[in-house]
Amino acid sequence: MRTHGWAGATPPTDDDEASKRIVVAAGELMDAGAGGVNIRQVAQRLGVARQTVYRYFPDTKALLSATAQHATDEFLADLARSLQGLTDPADAIVEAIALTFERLRQHRRFGLLFAEAEHGRFTAEVTSPQAIAMGRVIVEHLDVDWAAHGWVEDDMDELVEVMLRFVQSLLVDQRELTRTPVELREFLHRWIGVAIAAKSINP
């Protein structure tokens, strides 16, 4: 493990910490709006030689893959904490959509959750396999007893599709920047929550 550089910070204590710092730096660059993040940019941010980064990641693809996995873990953990205890289908989905939109808008690195795995570029296809799989993970980790509310497998797939399409529409429309968090949730309850409540049965 290299022990100098690291932008003046205390050097990592082991390889795991070094790898994590590199991944975090890549995510920070993305959040700052950097395009086409690569090993050279990450090395510059950390104040280390490119060879130091290459020691842990053989190429940019491997670095982006690790950054995507870290972003996924961070995103899901944060979402799980925020949605804990919401057992009503409409309330849970409205909050899940709102939080997903807010997190993606605030932290560009979370866009890697829905990126094309091969190229590390954000996918324009909201119903891509990567996006659908991530949507299912979000929905299935909610504290909602979907079966007790009458939801079956096909319903869940369509619910995920609607969620993702709604999040995408919010992200591409800059008008959403004018809505407060409360207004956003009221809007979602009127047009999404009502439909989910109508589909659900009382257990």
Score class of each variant (00 low, 15 high):
Ile132Trp: 03
Ala133Thr: 13
Ala96Phe: 00
Glu118Gln: 15
Gly135Ala: 08
Asp157Ser: 12
Met156Ile: 14
His141Lys: 12
Glu95Asp: 13
Leu159His: 07
Asp145Lys: 01
Gly120Leu: 04
Leu159Glu: 10
Glu116Trp: 11
Val144Met: 09
Arg105Thr: 06
Glu140Asn: 14
Asp145Val: 05
Glu140Gly: 13
Asp155Ala: 14
Phe114Ala: 11
Pro129Thr: 15
Val137Ser: 07
Glu140Arg: 14
Glu158Gln: 15
Ala92Met: 06
Glu158Arg: 15
Val126Ile: 01
Ala124Asp: 11
His107Tyr: 10
Ile97Phe: 09
Glu102Phe: 11
Gly111Val: 05
Ala124Lys: 05
His149Ile: 02
Glu95Thr: 01
Ala117Glu: 06
Ile138Cys: 02
Gly120Val: 05
Phe101Glu: 12
Leu99Arg: 09
Val152Cys: 03
Gly150Asn: 13
Glu102Lys: 14
Ala117Ser: 12
Thr127Trp: 00
Asp145Phe: 10
Ile97Asn: 06
Ala98Ile: 06
Thr127Tyr: 03
Asp155Tyr: 08
Ala115Trp: 01
Arg121Glu: 15
Asp154Val: 07
Trp151Gly: 01
Asp143Phe: 10
Met156Val: 13
Asp143Thr: 05
Asp157Gln: 13
Leu104Ala: 01
His119Gln: 12
Ala147Gln: 01
Ile138Leu: 09
Ile138Met: 09
Glu158Pro: 04
His141Gly: 10
Glu140Tyr: 12
Gln106Phe: 06
Asp155Gly: 14
Phe114Asp: 00
Ala96Gly: 11
Thr100Pro: 11
Ala124Ile: 10
Ala131Met: 01
Gly120Cys: 14
Asp154Pro: 00
Arg121Asn: 12
Asp91Cys: 01
Val139Phe: 06
Gly150Tyr: 07
Glu116Phe: 09
Asp154Phe: 04
Phe122Met: 08
Arg108Tyr: 04
Arg109Ser: 13
Ala148Arg: 09
Asp91Met: 05
Phe114Met: 01
His107Ile: 07
Glu118Phe: 12
Ala98Val: 01
